[in-house]
């Protein structure tokens, strides 16, 4: 969970920083999207690096989900008779919603790829143009319910990251009595920055900041 989670958190942070390029205007944002496909050029060919990254991410996501399913099955097997009454004392909302949060994020990722990568959903016919990413973002997010879904999914991602990032340091054995608080802060800051950065794009389109 921790190792694959680390890869995914790294991706999410870089992706969020890429999203912020939308504020540099249409030209630069489109050039960024084209540039992603040419990373490593001319040593590596067109889209080769991008596909390598996609493969790494897909593998990490797959293993992350497999580990989550195994942990869930272990938990259910470890307590066949549940409590009639059970109180939560100090567990955070985020830590208790990791499993459903993960399901929501998976569904969101599928929608997001079908939406802004393929233009298969959320666009009127003929409105999606491959690599005109700026136009696609503006058109795509003009539908308020699409933006609302993105914003809701980002809140879920933020909660998942808040527990995940801290938990990662705990699982990898890096946390101790002195650094525990530092890693908690790191989890708060990283999830907050990712959520605010990402939400700003659909919100920016809705309020007319990005047009």
């Amino acid at each position: 969970m921790a190792v694959t989670g680390f890869i995914l958190v790294g991706f999410v942070i870089v992706h969020m920083l890429g999203n912020l390029k939308v504020y540099q205007g249409e030209e630069k944002f489109n050039a960024y999207a084209v540039g992603l496909r040419e990373i490593g050029s001319p040593a590596v060919g067109h889209e080769q690096f991008l596909w390598l990254m996609r493969l790494v991410l897909l593998t990490a996501t797959g293993l992350h989900i497999v580990a989550a399913v195994q942990l869930t099955q272990m938990s259910h097997a470890a307590r066949p008779v549940s409590y009639v009454q059970k109180k939560v004392i100090q567990a955070t909302y985020a830590s208790r919603t990791m499993r459903w949060g993960g399901v929501i994020i998976t569904l969101f990722v599928v929608y997001h790829i079908l939406h802004l990568t393929f233009g298969a959903v959320g666009f009127p016919p003929g409105q999606y143009r491959h690599l005109s990413v700026y136009r696609n973002v503006v058109t795509g997010f003009s539908l308020w319910y699409v933006s609302a879904f993105y914003i809701a999914a980002m809140v879920a991602l933020g909660l998942h990251m808040y527990h995940g990032v801290w938990s990662m340091f705990q699982t990898l054995g890096l946390s101790d009595e002195n650094t525990g608080r530092l890693y908690r802060s790191l989890a708060i800051v990283s999830s907050f920055v990712v959520v605010v950065g990402n939400i700003s794009v659909p919100a920016g389109v809705l309020v007319g900041l990005v047009k």
């Binding site: 938990s75 100090q90 567990a91 830590s95």
Partner: peptide, 15 residues
Amino acid sequence: EEFGGCTNIGECEAV
């Protein structure tokens, strides 16, 4: 011994 896996939730520490 068929205990479950730790997900760093922290309810153990609380009780």
